[in-house]
Nucleic acid binder design. Sequence first.
DNA 1: TGAACATATGAATACTTGTTCATATGTTCA
DNA 2: TGAACATATGAACAAGTATTCATATGTTCA
Lengths: 119, 119
Amino acid sequence: MSEKLVCENIHHHDESVKDTLQKLPEQQTVEALANTFKVFSDPGRVKILCALSIHEMCVQGLCDIVGMSQSAASHQLRLLRTARLVKTRREGKSIFYSLDDEHITSILYAGLTHVNEKV
Amino acid sequence: MSEKLVCENIHHHDESVKDTLQKLPEQQTVEALANTFKVFSDPGRVKILCALSIHEMCVQGLCDIVGMSQSAASHQLRLLRTARLVKTRREGKSIFYSLDDEHITSILYAGLTHVNEKV
DNA sequence: TGAACATATGAATACTTGTTCATATGTTCA
DNA sequence: TGAACATATGAACAAGTATTCATATGTTCA
């Protein structure tokens, strides 16, 4: 495909590539990683996750907090559920959402550290 | 007032919302967070970042590693540069990319931990 | 039972994003 | 200087995504 682009003086350049390719995570893992981060890539969802890292919350509450319509929030919550980032619990008419495990918080924190540094 | 009793349930809900709203990061921060994670939400970019966490690399090398066209890689690299996740260094005709700081690796690791757990 | 409430879902739409193609910029070396 | 190489960029298009509107499901309580 891109043979034309392959560098002529291959020596150390090619070595680095080979070496790096070996140490790289598998394609499957890379895709799972990207998919995980994709869930964190929307302000609404981040806000939901932050809220849930403080307190479990019903859908109405989350709507109030993120300023989203009930429908929009519900769609996003389905995404979060599918990604196994949140779990639910029914209490009467309401359904309470909470984080599925603590890794989620540590991902948020890792991001926060970066964000705070760059300001 | 007698209505207070009726409102008791709502209050409980409302209290959580109020409390959570206070503890929540600012809107600005939430958006910065989401934008940061958005950069990690593409398999190509994740692969690039993983590669750079192992070794600095020129564009050609990155193309080989991620299996992207030169143009596509370059566009993605601009994104990474704009997000201040990578920095560049020129050496002759080539431009070498490397991670801008170590937080990036820790974000990747936080994600990896989650991904590995869910398998 | 049915009315009121809480949440979920499907379809349509407006918006965003990644890639490609063509071309431009910048560097080296003969 | 010009030819060859390395990288960057703009425009266009295809694919993905978030929201809205309308409606469906499921729960409680009178």
